[in-house]
Amino acid sequence: MNASPAVRRQDPDRDPGLQPERTRLAWRRTTLSGTVVAVLAVKTVLHGGASAAGVTAGALCCVLWLGFLSVAHRRIRTLAATPSPVAFAPRHAAAAVLCTVAMAVCGAALVL
């Protein structure tokens, strides 16, 4: 509230709450969490003596991570394109969740 009007009115298109930026960073954090899971999956495969099924599950985890990355990348590009971006599409939300669930299924296959 105390910011001088001159500073506040510098760029009328910019959201003073930085919502798109915060959302972009949330996507980054989530991708990072997915990366940790993928790395742990690869570690499990390497530790487990690299059977054919294990290697397949590990490779699938990496592919799923790439899928998640592409969803995140697309969303980040949309967020950056306009000052007031359109809402997230349910199809992409479902795709992101599908990648997560499939990673868990691969994990179950690796653990058993």
Partner: peptide, 25 residues
Amino acid sequence: RFSLANERTFLAWLRTALALIGGGF
């Protein structure tokens, strides 16, 4: 802004899910 806030909440829950999965590993 409401849609973006909802999206961030979704992502926070997704991170929780990923943390649980990572915990399983």
